[in-house]
Amino acid sequence: MALRDVTLGQFVPGDSVLHRLDARVKLVCGLVLAAALFATGAWAGYGLLAAYVGLATGAARLPAGAFARGLRPVLWLVALSVTFHALLTPGTPVVDFGPLAVTVEGLDAAGRLAVRLVLLVMGVQLVMMTTSPVALTDALEWLLTPGRRLGLPAHELAMMVTIALRFVPALVEELDRIIKAQKARGAELERGGPISRARALVPILVPLFIGAFRRADALALALESRCYRGSLGRTRWRASRWAARDWTALAGSLVVMVLVGWRFR
């Protein structure tokens, strides 16, 4: 069951408005959202961005359980940083613990940080979960294309990301098989102190890495035997075009973000 958490942010097929948007629009909106979240410092700005993310979440019509599961690991980070911020910011004390005190300023800073982190992760999740990996990497390649003049291998980088994403489920499955095989040989994974637990990982990680290299070798051969040679003279099978809804979504999002970044610094 724990293994299922590894596939966080996995694409959930669907036909909501967000699913049908061009991946490039979603990627750009995600990046601008991240920028806006850090540009603004006012609660009104956060409110506007929260409304924006909330609207997008509603439009994505993702299974609530899967979406919430993705947020769970972030909540730990949020809890940790909120605690530190609330306790360590000097100012008017609300509750006094002797050397440490929860201050009004601390609670304010902690609240801002929490909102930033949660909205950021929600935005990333929305893009990841509504966009197929292939479309996502095509969009990534498109975004990196200007960098090609500077010698950035845009296509190759995007290809690497696609392959990496493609192999996550396969590796999870292999990991499961290796764990079972070592358990069948009496391996105990959940017993003992931190050192013996770390040592118990060796019989699992070594075969996993060897398997990953074996796959990579086979894949490289398979690509070469089909005459893959990188970006040189390569055309695209799925040529995505910008539709009216893409322009509308992009324009609407940019208006919101610019407003937030400019009006509510």
Binding site: I178, Q182, A184, G186, P207
Partner: peptide, 23 residues
């Protein structure tokens, strides 16, 4: 398991085979 050689991990054959008895 199928393809059991994919679970080998130790530096020597002896260390790998004695993994079970040690456990």
């Amino acid at each position: 398991f199928q393809y059991p050689e994919h679970q080998l991990f130790a530096e020597t054959v002896l260390a790998d085979v004695s993994f079970g008895p040690r456990n």
